[in-house]
Write a protein that binds this DNA or RNA. Structure first.
Lengths: 363, 363
DNA sequence: ATGAAAGCGCTAACAG
DNA sequence: CTGTTAGCGCTTTCAT
C-alpha cells in the first residue's frame, strides 16, 4: 500500500535517483556491485514505477484503444481477443471502447477524447464518414481501420476482400446447384460504397451474374443490424413474402445463426430444402446444429497486422510511409449447412492470399 | 497534429495558465467575458488536455482493468460488454487483460504490473490462491473479484450463489422426471473449495440428495476447460463409458453447446432421450437448436455492482468499509433442451434475490 | 560510472 | 476574480 518512489530507493541505497533509474531500466553503465545493491533495495521496498509519470515524460503510454460496435457480437469478441494478444507482443495494452455503431460515439473516439491516454487506435467503424477523419478536431494519433473503408487511403486499413469473399460464398451455393439464392443482411439505407453490406451484396450479384442467374430483388432481405435476432426476423419476412429461396447467403455468421434457428422453427430442412452460409467463422458456427458453412477471414492475421502497423507508426525510429491498405486472407469452409451430414468434415475449398504484415516486430 | 498546451492557449488569450485551466475544468469563479474569450481560443486552437499529466497530478487515471481468462468465451465477452458500459457511467474506461486462466498471468495482474496506469481491478480469477492476494508484492489498488472467491473476505466479491444455481438447474431436471442426471464440467484437479466447478457440483449433489437420488460417480464428466470442444468430448467419453444419462447438467452454457452438438452427432434426441441444461444464459443458447435451458445470472447486475463497488473505493470522499461479498441474482430459464418444442416459450421458473451493495458483510 | 537539475503538462495552494 | 509557484515521479541532458 505504500508508494515507493525512485527517490526513496535512492535514499535508502545511498545513491542518486539517476542511478536507481538506470538500474530499473537496465542501463549498461552501472557498476556491478552498485547495481546489485540497488536491486536489493528495489526488491526490499517493492518498488513499482509510476507509469503515469513515465508516460508524461515519454509522451507515450503503451496503451492503444480498440473501438468496435459491440462485444456481444461474437466476431468482435473473438477479434478483440486476438488484438489483445497481438498487442501484448508489442508491449501494448488494449483499452476497449464500445461505440454501439453510433456515429456520435465513433466521432468521439476519433476526435481523441482519450487524448494522451492512448498512443494509437484500432477501429472498426460503422457509421463514420470520410470527412470525419480529416476534420480539424480529428485524431492526432495513428489509426488503423478494420473492415469498412472510406476516404481513399487516408489512414491504414486492414480487411478481407469483401466482394471476393461474398462471391466465394455465393459461388459455393451455385456449385451445389442452388439457383434461388437469397441474401440476408442488405442495408440499403447505407449508401456508402465501402459499407460491408454493400460490398458483400456486390459479390453476391457478381457470382449470380457469372453463373447466369438473375438478381432477384425479392430474394434480398434487409436487416437493421447484424445479429441473430434480425437474421431470424429477416428470413421470416422473406418467407412470409412468398419468396422460395433454396439457399441463403447471410452477410455474417450471426445473421446465419438466426436464420438457422428460424428455419428449424418452420421445419425447413438445412441444407435439404435451404442451404445456409455465412461469413466470419465464429466458433459458435462450428458447433451449431447443423454446423455452419462460412467464409473464414484470418482474424488472427487481421489483428496481428493491424497492431503491427500501429506499432510501426508508434516507433519514432521508423520512417513514416503512406497509409497502407492491407488485404487479409480468407477461406471458404464448407460444413453441414451446405453439404449436409455426409460431409461433416471441414473442407477448405479456397484461400485468398494475404498481403503480409509490415516489416519489423517489437521485442 | 500540433500539440496545444494550456500555456499556449493562455499566451494567445492573454491570460494565465490557471485561468485557462479554470475554464477547461468549468470552475465557477471566472468572469463571463473572460470565460468566453478563453473558450474561443480553446476551440480555435483545438486544445485537448494531456491526460497523462492530469493523471500524474491527480494520482488517478480513470482507467480500470478487467482481467479475465479469455474473450473467446461468450460469457466473458458478454460480461466485458456490460462492464465497459457500467464503467462508462462512472467516467471510467476499461482496459482488458486476458490471463488465459494461467496463474502466472493472474499473479502479474494482481501484483500490479500496470501500476499507476489503472485505478482499480475487476478480476475473474481461475488459478489464484488466497495468499496471492496478500503477498507483499500484491496489488495496492482496489480489487473486485468475480465468480470464484477465496481468502475469506480479503477483497470485494460479486457472484451468484453457485451452489443454489446448480441446485436449481438440477432440481429442474428432477422435476421433469429425470433420474440419471449427469454433470459435465467437474474439475477434480482443483481442490479449492471455492472453485466454481466444486460449488456447482455441490449444488448438483444437494439436489440429488434432496430428491432421494444417488450420487453416481459414473455420471460425472470432468473437463480440462469450460469450452464447447471439451463439452462435446466429455459427453462422448461419458457415453462411451457406458453411462446412460437421461439428463445432462453442464456447468456452463458453452459446455452445454458442445454437449448438444455431440448428442446431435450421435442421433440422440434432446430432450426426448436426454435433457440438457447449462448455466450462464449466453445469447448463443437462446438461438441454439434446440434452444438451451439455463440458469441466467444477472450479468448486467454483476457488472454494475462490481464497477460501483470499485468506484466507491476510488472515491476518496467515501469512507472505507470492510470488503463486501455480494450475491447476484439468477433465474432458471427453461427452454427446448429440457421442455421440448412444445414449450418453446421462455419460462422464468425461479429467481433468487440479489443482495444489494449496501454495507454489512454477507456471510 | 554517478550526481544534480531541468522539465514533461497539469492542478492545487497561495497570493494579489 | 486572476496570476504565480510548486510540485506529481520520472527520464534526460550536462557535469563531474
Amino acid at each position: 500500500m505504500v508508494r515507493v518512489r525512485l527517490q526513496d530507493v535512492a535514499a535508502r541505497a545511498g545513491v542518486s535517483v539517476k542511478t536507481v533509474s538506470n538500474v530499473v531500466n537496465g542501463y549498461r553503465h552501472v557498476a556491478p556491485d552498485t547495481r546489485a545493491r540497488v536491486q536489493l533495495v528495489l526488491d526490499e521496498m517493492g518498488y513499482r514505477p509510476n507509469l503515469a509519470a513515465r508516460n508524461l515524460r515519454a509522451g507515450r503510454t503503451g496503451v492503444i484503444a480498440l473501438a468496435l460496435p459491440d462485444l456481444d457480437n461474437p466476431y468482435f469478441a473473438e477479434l478483440t481477443g486476438s488484438v489483445v494478444r497481438a498487442a501484448e507482443k508489442h508491449g501494448l495494452t488494449v483499452l476497449v471502447d464500445q461505440t454501439e455503431g453510433l456515429r456520435d460515439r465513433e466521432l468521439e473516439v476519433v476526435e481523441g477524447f482519450r487524448n494522451h491516454l492512448i498512443d494509437g487506435l484500432v477501429m472498426s467503424p460503422m457509421a463514420l464518414r470520410a470527412k470525419d477523419l480529416t476534420g480539424r478536431a480529428a485524431v492526432d494519433i495513428p489509426v488503423v481501420l478494420l473492415g469498412e473503408k472510406f476516404g481513399a487511403g487516408a489512414v491504414d486499413h486492414v480487411a478481407i476482400d469483401n466482394v471476393a469473399a461474398a462471391e466465394a460464398a455465393t459461388a459455393h451455393l451455385v456449385a451445389l446447384g442452388r439457383t434461388r439464392i437469397a441474401v440476408v443482411g442488405d442495408q440499403p439505407g447505407s449508401r456508402r460504397r465501402s459499407g460491408v453490406a454493400h460490398l458483400r451484396r456486390q459479390g453476391w450479384e457478381r457470382a449470380l451474374t457469372a453463373a447466369g442467374l438473375d438478381v432477384d430483388e425479392r430474394l434480398v432481405a434487409p436487416v437493421p443490424a447484424f445479429d441473430r435476432q434480425h437474421g431470424a426476423a429477416a428470413v421470416a419476412a422473406l418467407l412470409d413474402d412468398g419468396a422460395r429461396p433454396d439457399a441463403l447467403f447471410c452477410f455474417n455468421d450471426t445473421l446465419a445463426i438466426g436464420a438457422l434457428r428460424l428455419l428449424a422453427d418452420r421445419g425447413i430442412d438445412v441444407p435439404g430444402d435451404v442451404a445456409v452460409i455465412g461469413i466470419d467463422d465464429v466458433a459458435e458456427g462450428r458447433f451449431a446444429v447443423p454446423t455452419l458453412s462460412t467464409v473464414a477471414p484470418d482474424k488472427a492475421g487481421i489483428a496481428r497486422t493491424a497492431v503491427a502497423m500501429l506499432a510501426e507508426r508508434l516507433d519514432p525510429a521508423s520512417e513514416q510511409r503512406p497509409p497502407r491498405d492491407v488485404r487479409a486472407g480468407f477461406e471458404l469452409v464448407a460444413r453441414e449447412s451446405t453439404l449436409g451430414r455426409s460431409a461433416s468434415a471441414v473442407s477448405a475449398v479456397r484461400a485468398a492470399a494475404a498481403v503480409p504484415p509490415p516489416r519489423g516486430t517489437a521485442r
